[in-house]
Nucleic acid binder design. Structure first.
Lengths: 105, 105
DNA sequence: CTGTATCCCAGACGATACTG
DNA sequence: CAGTATCGTCTGGGATACAG
């Protein structure tokens, strides 16, 4: 829970679970997150050993974030949350279900 | 995550997953929780439809909390957290692992 | 593009004390 | 036994603006 408790953290891990992604890609994946919070969460996850941060020597510079082995351990938890969250959301609303709402609410 | 995000919430759902329990039993199950927070979490979970609260007509009065069907939906998530948390804790420390630490840290 | 710097505040949490 | 009341602290998160 310490690892997944921060705002947007489950969404973030989920977005990185398929493939490494860059800062701006994550911003696009999760439109409502602010740059500040995204940065904060990425720093925290890096400090906890959940993700890695690699600066690619391009111009303009790009930065790639990827799950570590530890990060991949968390995927089953996210999957359980998504599964339950989707089921519960479908029970109360018939509208389409967004991934963000499932992981946050 | 909204349902499980509060402090001690996963521990609480876990404690209720096997059988209904009373206020003082929960305090004993989770020694470091304060009465105020326990009460607050129970009220919140009740409002969210995760648990039920039944006052038993005994003297002195006792109150029993139980998971609803919705609450039982959350058990797989807790199990996933416990499974991963236990594994990760074992990787970094060789000391015995407490359930509270697995669910909180 | 990839961030940091400020400011701000609601609310969550904890300790302690008190009550029907 | 099963809570409430009160107080204080702290930090997480959001908006906005700026920077290398």
């Amino acid at each position: 829970m310490k690892l997944l408790g921060g705002a947007w953290t489950p969404s973030l891990v989920w977005c990185l679970s398929a493939e490494p992604r860059r800062f701006s890609e994550l911003r696009a994946d999760i439109p409502r997150i602010s740059a500040k919070v995204l940065s904060a969460r990425l720093r925290a996850l890096e400090a906890e050993g959940v993700i890695t941060r690699s600066v690619l020597p391009t111009s303009p510079p790009s930065v790639e974030y990827a799950l570590t082995e530890l990060g991949r351990e968390l995927i089953p938890v996210i999957e359980a949350i998504v599964r339950v969250g989707t089921k519960l959301t479908r029970m109360t609303a018939m509208a389409p279900v967004s991934l963000e709402s499932v992981l946050r609410d």
